[in-house]
Structures are given as structure tokens and as C-alpha cells.
Design a protein around this nucleic acid. Sequence first.
DNA 1: CCGAAATATGAAAAAATTTTCATTATTGTT
DNA 2: AACAATAATGAAAATTTTTTCATATTTCGG
Lengths: 224, 224
Amino acid sequence: MKILIAEDDPQIALSLKKNLTGEGHFVVIASDGEAALEEIEKDSFDVLLLDWRMPKRSGIEVCRQLRNDGDQIPIILLTALTDISKKVEVLEVGADDYITKPFSFDEVCARLKAVVRRSGSKSKRLTFGKFRLDLIAHTLENGEERIKLPEMEFELLHYFVEHRNLIIGKEQLSEDVWKLTFLPDTNFIEVTIKNLRKKLKALGSVNYIKTIYGEGYSFIDDEE
Amino acid sequence: MKILIAEDDPQIALSLKKNLTGEGHFVVIASDGEAALEEIEKDSFDVLLLDWRMPKRSGIEVCRQLRNDGDQIPIILLTALTDISKKVEVLEVGADDYITKPFSFDEVCARLKAVVRRSGSKSKRLTFGKFRLDLIAHTLENGEERIKLPEMEFELLHYFVEHRNLIIGKEQLSEDVWKLTFLPDTNFIEVTIKNLRKKLKALGSVNYIKTIYGEGYSFIDDEE
DNA sequence: CCGAAATATGAAAAAATTTTCATTATTGTT
DNA sequence: AACAATAATGAAAATTTTTTCATATTTCGG
């Protein structure tokens, strides 16, 4: 997951970044409202953690502008309790959720996942750890670097991520990814898996594709 | 556009099909609620024209089931005036709009376009005439046949359809599609356009990609 | 430990895609 | 009509992707 933290208090921002990075996410910090808008214009993020009060442009203004621009990024507002009178107000400006300060890191994590999961069904992107698979551009990104995947490698990874944490047999891959009605008599499935593992490794992946001897493979994503 | 008409009155169904086909769309008819659900399970459509009263499963039941299943296909209910007391009821079952019988073909067309346009911003598919470009699978379909486009051809067509009815110069294509900062000294843009035109022609296309001498190209879609 | 089965790996062949190349066709101006 | 510029076309070369092939490695059960 690629997360933008818009927060003018460096202590909060850095603490969140440290913890979220430790969970395997890619984090960018913007210390005021304008910088946040610039980051969002420059690049895409999976979710925005947005402080309510900030210099230059407040969180509310940022939120309103994004929604007016038609941007559908999931937004979580970080607020002091006195900042809001009702949750209705949060929804009015177009945020998806809010968290009141002080907050626990566990609560931030839970809300992040819930908000991203809620919008995920319409997403044109799948995430695992700090990785993002763009379903339209057929690219894989680790937060800093993006590569275009050849078609079969993209299809295979897409299938794995959609079936993360399940055991997928080679017959299933043959049928669903390669659209074959029989197990191939050469080992191109293994070769493609090799090629994909190599690409993931080059982008700094931990070991996502696990072999289950005699059964198939499982794409392990502990964050889900 | 690929349209499913769920309507038990053959006269209405056939008349709509004839007119919509004449406008360049691809139309499938289901004559009862069950057949409609089966068609939607078998294939994907851009919009569903759904008769309120039908044998086996009413339009209301179909609509409710689709929404309960999480299906987001745009739905227009076809109703007698006595069938509804308020528009609120239509929205409650999850339809996007309704048309009261008897209706004019022009009204059907206008509502179809409006409903599809409203949901189009979240679409993973672009349509022109009877064609559909799947942004995730990178396939082009004419309602009956589907081909996978090689990457550069897909990117080019995607760019054209997103900029339909505008004039696109070769410098713009070089920059935006090929990500080059200079005009190429060989003519691969023209060659790719040739290859794409050939694919469109094989699928029964009228002439979408028009050359504007000395300026570039325009993807002409009269339906928009 | 051994052997068979399953899987990983690297190289090469086959196939597909992209780009280059050369020529023909079209357009617009003089 | 002639000419230059622009664009279309087909073929071939270059590049990339996919699959085949052969061998090495790993796993598991006897």
C-alpha cells in the first residue's frame, strides 16, 4: 500500500511513517495542505491520512478540493475530538472515515485496511505489502520504481493476488491463466513462475510465491 | 455498446433491438427474468433495459438480485405508468432510471447514454459503437468476437477512445503513447495505426480513425 | 540413504510484437 | 500538371515474450 500522510506535526508524521513502513507499506509525508495536493497530482496513492488542521490549506479544504476534482482516493481525517461535532460533518466534506487524536497505531492500521478494502472492489489497482499492481497499465510498482510486466507474467501475478493466501494447483493455473483444458507437457508454468519471482526479487520483494510440494502454489500476504 | 433487453413483449423487444442495432449497438434479448439473469452471468453488458413485469422473475426481482449480488450494471426499468407510485421506488430496488411505456425511441436512446455516461467514470471498459475495449484484459470486442490487442495497439486505441472526436497530432501520440520526447525518425506510429486499422476492419468497423492531413488523426465517434 | 516425483533453473528455439526500411499513394500548393 | 510533403503499405529486421528443452535441485516416502 502506498500511503500519503498529510500532517504538520513532524512527530506524529514520522511516528506513523516508521510504523507503517515497518508493516511493509510505502509512505510519503506532506507537511501542509498544499504539499499534499502536489503529491497527489504527481503520483497516485492508495489512501490519504489527512490532518484536519494544517498550515496553508486545511485538511477540510484539501478534502473538498479532491472530491470536487473527482478524485476518489480514500481519505481518513485525523482530528482532535473538539474539531468535529458529528460524524456527519466528516462525510459532508467527502472523507471516508476519521480518527480522533490521540490514537493508537493499531486503530490507524485497522481503519486504513477497512477504508481501502471498502473502496477496493472498484479499484483499478491491487496492493500487497508495499507493492501495487496496476490492472490497466499492467505495471508493478514498489513505491519508487515501476516496471511493465509481460502479459503472461501480469496475468499470473494478477491471478495470485486475487487468490492470495489460497492454495492454487497447477491444473488451476493452466485452466484459468493459460485457458488450457489440459495440463501442459512442457513446464512453461514453472518457467513463468521463475521469471515472475525474479522480477519480484529485483523489486525488493520478500518471498510471496510459496511452493506447496505436490499441490501447487500459494501467494502469501500476511497483511490481508 | 452492448445492451441487454429484458422484455417479454416480442414486438417491443424486436423494435428496440432493430433501432438500437441501427444506431450501431450490439443487442441481446431475454424474454423473461430468468433468461436475463442467465445472460448476465454468461457475459457482460454495458446496460440493462429491464421490463418491470415479466414471467418467471419480475424486473424488480431481477434488479434486486443483481444489486444484492454486487453487480453494478446500469439498469433502466421499463414501466407502465401505473406500475410505480414514485421514482423513489425505482431507486430503492437499485435501478438507475426508468422509462414509462409507451416511450419514444429517442427517449430510450437519451436515457441509455445518460445512464452509461454517469456510471462510465468508474468503468473498466470503454465503448464506441458496438465495440468495447476492456481496459483490464486489453481486449477489443464487437459483441460476438473478442481479440487480445498487442500492447502498443491497445495503448494507441485506448488513447484514441479517451480523446475521441479531438484532433491528435503525431507529436502528441509520440509523447503520450510512446513516452518519447522527440518525434521518431522512422514511421512506426503510422505502421501501428495501419495495424490497428486492419484489426478494426477485420472486426467489422466503420472508419473510426480519420487522418487529418498535416495535423494528425481524429477518432470519430458520432454516438458521443 | 535411495529413488522417484516434483519443482527450479538456465539456455535456446519458436512465436509474437515492435521498429526499421523502402516504396507507393495521397494531399495540397504553385 | 508538377512537385514536395505527408501518410499508407508491405516486408524485413530487431527485439521481446513465450514455450520448449535439458538438467539440476528439492521433497518425500520407503
